[in-house]
Write a protein that binds this DNA or RNA. Structure first.
Lengths: 124, 124
DNA sequence: TTACCCTAGTATACATTAGTAACTTAAATA
DNA sequence: TATTTAAGTTACTAATGTATACTAGGGTAA
C-alpha cells in the first residue's frame, strides 16, 4: 500500500527539468504557429504576420527572438533597399517540428471529443 | 519566384485550429507536469502538490479543473474522514501523454544544445 | 476546552508576464 | 509632398500566476 507511493516521480523546480525548460518555451500562444508556418520554407516578417491571423507585430518580433535564441530559427538580413529579413528553421528547428507535429495530429484527431467534454463540464 | 509563396499555409484565428485549441491549453506552465505526474497512477491533491515543486494550491486546483474540463483527468471524492480526493488520467489523458512524451524525450535529448544556443545568443 | 493538526480546497490582494494599439525609422516610389 | 513597405519600439491593458489568509469538518494533545 505504501510501497507504490515511493516510486512516484518528483518534478523538480530547476533548470535541468526539460519539461519546464523546453515545453514551457514552445508551449506559449504563438511559438508553435510560427514554427509550423516556417515548415513551408523561409519567410519574411510581414508575410508571417499576415499568415498567422491575429498576431501583433510585437509578439511576432518577440517570439521570433525567443525561437532564435533557443536555436530553432535563423534570422538573415539582406541589405537591400528596403531591407529584407528572412526567418528560416534551423536543423534543430526542423527536428523539433517532428514530435510537435505528432502532438498537433493528436489534437486534430481529438479536438471534437475535447470540445464535447468541455461542453458537458460547463453544463454541470 | 512568386509561385512558391502562394502555397504557404495560413493559420486561421478560429476555434477550429487545433494548435490554438489544444496546444495552448496543455502548453501552460503546469498542465504537462500534472499529466506526467499522473502517468504513475492516481494521486491525491497534496501528494501532487509536493511532487510538483513550486506549484501553489491555487494553480494546482485551477489546472486540475482545466484538465478535468478537457476530459484528460477524472476527479473522484472519497467521503472518508478526512475527505480524500483522487485524480486519475482518463483514456483520453493516457492517449495524449503519448505524443506529449515524444516531445519531452526530444527536449531531454536536446536541452544541452538549447542551453548552449541560449548562452551564445545572450553573449552577442 | 482551548489550541493546533489534517484533508482539500476558496478568497483576496498583489506581482509578473503576455498581449494590443499606436507610433517610429528609413528609404523608395507617385 | 504624401504614401508605401519593412521592421520594429513604446506605452498601455489584460491575463496569468503567487502569497497569504481563511473555510470546514473532524482528530489529537495539554
Amino acid at each position: 500500500m505504501a510501497k507504490n507511493k515511493v516510486e512516484k516521480r518528483i518534478f523538480y523546480n530547476n533548470e535541468e527539468c526539460p519539461i519546464r525548460n523546453v515545453v514551457a518555451q514552445i508551449g506559449d500562444k504563438w511559438s508553435s504557429l510560427i514554427l509550423f508556418a516556417l515548415v513551408d520554407g523561409a519567410d519574411r516578417f510581414n508575410s508571417l504576420k499576415s499568415r498567422i491571423e491575429g498576431i501583433s507585430q510585437r509578439m511576432l518580433t518577440q517570439t521570433l527572438r525567443d525561437l532564435e535564441r533557443d536555436g530553432y530559427v535563423e534570422r538573415t538580413i539582406f541589405p537591400e533597399v528596403p531591407v529584407r529579413v528572412e526567418y528560416e528553421l534551423t536543423k534543430m528547428g526542423r527536428e523539433l517540428v517532428k514530435p510537435l507535429y505528432q502532438l498537433v495530429a493528436w489534437a486534430e484527431a481529438n479536438h471534437q471529443a475535447i470540445n464535447q467534454s468541455r461542453k458537458a463540464y460547463d453544463e454541470r
